[in-house]
């Protein structure tokens, strides 16, 4: 079964033997619509999705990822405090020996209209593997 896959960091999600991915909206954020859509989408794409819903803390994401041996955590943030809520996420993962996990983040990551390139850089510096802009307006 799912022995730890240590081969490489840049796993592409081609194989469909039901890798677990974790979804959730971080911090005190209650925007639930996008989260539900992501769940439907990734389930349809053949992933085993564990959706933690809204108002999820870093620790909750990490606890769930450890128990399930998840391949990736998809963090959403819509309400503008994403940079604060995500601070230290990668560090906490490393501390909890989740050293191979992919961290993606998306939504409305910062307050106001900061150019996406700057937002992206900021989150990559925090240790996120990929950063996604808001896709709906």
């Amino acid at each position: 079964m799912n022995q730890e896959n240590r081969s490489n960091q840049k796993l592409e999600f081609r194989n469909m033997d039901q890798d677990t991915i974790i979804l959730g909206v971080i911090g005190a954020d209650c925007h639930s619509v996008g989260n539900k859509i992501l769940e439907l989408f990734f389930t349809a794409e053949g992933f085993k999705v564990l959706n933690l819903g809204v108002m999820v803390s870093q620790q909750e994401f990490i606890n769930a990822a450890i128990e399930t041996n998840a391949k990736a955590i998809f963090v959403s943030s819509l309400y503008g405090h994403g940079d604060i809520d995500c601070q230290g996420f990668r560090d906490l993962c490393l501390e909890k020996v989740l050293d191979r996990i992919l961290l993606y983040v998306g939504g409305n990551l910062v307050v106001g209209k900061t150019p996406f390139e700057i937002v992206e850089e900021k989150f990559k510096k925090m240790g996120f593997d990929r950063v996604f802009p808001q896709t709906s307006t």
Partner: peptide, 10 residues
């Protein structure tokens, strides 16, 4: 105990 079914086994 430890791990979900099919989850962490390490």
């Amino acid at each position: 105990s430890g791990g979900t079914d099919g989850g962490n086994s390490r």
